[in-house]
Nucleic acid binder design. Sequence first.
DNA 1: GGTATGAGCAACCAAGAGGTTGCCTATCAC
DNA 2: GTGATAGGCAACCTCTTGGTTGCTCATACC
Lengths: 120, 120
Amino acid sequence: MPITQSLPDPRVFAALGDPTRLALIERLRRDGALPITRLTDGTGITRQATAKHLSVLAAAELVRATRVGREVRYTLSPAPLHRVAAWAEAVFAENEARLDRLDAYLQAQHPPVQRGENER
Amino acid sequence: MPITQSLPDPRVFAALGDPTRLALIERLRRDGALPITRLTDGTGITRQATAKHLSVLAAAELVRATRVGREVRYTLSPAPLHRVAAWAEAVFAENEARLDRLDAYLQAQHPPVQRGENER
DNA sequence: GGTATGAGCAACCAAGAGGTTGCCTATCAC
DNA sequence: GTGATAGGCAACCTCTTGGTTGCTCATACC
């Protein structure tokens, strides 16, 4: 069963590969739509730093910005997460399958000692 | 239903956030245990570059090295992939749930027109 | 109107990442 | 033994990244 799953966008992983951004994702998951200033306080960093992180997340399409008056609200856009989860799970499963085949092959080459009548 | 899922190790995402390393993962998924030299040829980079990438993957426990004679074979160690998939799927699901709650709330505030006998 | 607040833009900086070359060690094959 | 092959280590280089400060623009409030 050759995998049909296409390779995911590395930018999504890269975007998730930073603790600050991971925390932003968690925050947005909990609280929904928040403007940059709100997302900034509590963290020890500047608003501009947060803005950069958000733009990385936006580039990976993990987050969507909508302007409301003078503020910009960020919300999670979880489609990439879904794709990433599917890929990771597929790789995991496929690897298990390969190991099983390898196992079967090795068993055939070196049948285990003491098997009992025909399986024990 | 507050998420019990703990935050995943950012190093796993960071390790996956590079096209070269993603390709290495794919290669190992397909072909199983391979030494560095084999993993290197075909790619346009040096053996040392590949070694660095593999050490990043190993630090994230995505890959395991076993020495066989003079060569070192790398194999996928997919447990982190499983965890990552679970987290991503959980965030996806929780976000959908939050959106649904928001939706219900909005419906309650602005009941849709034409609801039937006693709503209109 | 004037003032406070939310956000964007640009320059800058230090540290890290991805890559290289050069050299050394260990194992295999003969 | 000799030579070829697999790999490790260290120094170096350049580009990116995470962060800052300073300034400007736009919207809201009174």
